[in-house]
Amino acid sequence: MFILVLLTVFIGTITWWLILAWLGFQKNIIGVIRGYAISSLAKYIPGFVWQYASRSVFLETYNIPIKTIAFAIGVEFILVTSLGGILSCLSYLVYGHQLIELLLGYKILISILLFLLVLLILFLPRLITLAANDQDRIKNIRNKKLYIYAVSVNFSGWLLMSWAFLFLSKSVGINNFNYSISLFLHSTNFFISNVFLFIPNGLVIREAIIVYLAKALVNQHMLILTSLLMRTLIFIAEVFLTLTLLLLPIKDPTRKNK
């Protein structure tokens, strides 16, 4: 279970490097993901800007323009949130409606949202190309291979974390969850909580969403416990990965920049 969480956290760092590489900056992978891992811990500080500000500081040592950093942060947020939304909408239409029944109008809205999010993922490279002015950068962005890698890798992270949530639920005695329920709960609570950027790591929001969605199946105290344990596992995995990356040797970016 912890291995799945750790792997998912690592996938997040690789997604970040792939996005930067897609934008034309294939810098030292260990250095970049180390900076990402360290800055990600800042999301536990009140205020949503700290993780992004610290990430920018790390990347500036590689002479990456602030505009590119802003593009990368925007792409990552849109990509991760959209994939979570796609899985949330899809898992609701396939199975989640058995947990919470909505009126037909809401189901239609969910279907429309699913369609729009898929379109956003498909046309995001085009949107970024239109927003870029640097011709060299545009040429690289039009090469969608790295973007496809980023989407695929991050998508796998959503699936793996849902398995981890399922295993954790069963370990605390919640035996009436299956993978479909786990995928729906995990993707939905992360997707919605991403909107509340000003709340440190979606604290309370995620717990409230899980309780609301699964209250018909499980005692709310067990749901809150599971969510808090999941938070703890993710935090431990983030710290473990950060410490591991700090032990790895990297080239000094101030000596040689690409």
Score class of each variant (00 low, 15 high):
M1Y: 04
F2Y: 14
I3R: 08
V5R: 00
V5S: 03
L7F: 12
I14H: 00
A21H: 10
L23A: 09
L23I: 08
G31W: 02
Y44N: 09
Y44L: 09
P46L: 10
G47F: 06
F48G: 15
A53N: 13
R55H: 13
L59G: 11
P65S: 09
A70N: 12
I73S: 06
I73T: 06
E76S: 07
L79Y: 05
I86N: 00
L90F: 11
S91H: 08
L93V: 14
Y95D: 13
G96Y: 05
Q98H: 08
Q98D: 07
L99F: 09
L99Y: 03
E101Y: 11
K107Q: 14
K107H: 11
K107W: 09
I110C: 01
F115I: 00
L116D: 06
L117S: 06
P125H: 10
R126V: 11
A132F: 09
N133L: 13
D134Q: 06
I138T: 11
I141L: 12
K144F: 12
Y149H: 03
Y149I: 03
V151W: 09
S152I: 13
V153Y: 08
G157Q: 05
W158L: 02
L159I: 14
L160I: 08
W163M: 00
L166C: 01
L168D: 01
N175Y: 15
N175L: 14
N176P: 05
N178H: 14
S180W: 11
I192W: 13
N194M: 15
V195E: 10
F196Q: 11
Y212T: 11
L213T: 11
L213E: 12
V218E: 02
H221S: 13
M222E: 07
T232S: 12
T232G: 11
L241F: 07
T244E: 03
L245M: 11
L246Y: 13
D252H: 04
P253H: 04
R255C: 04
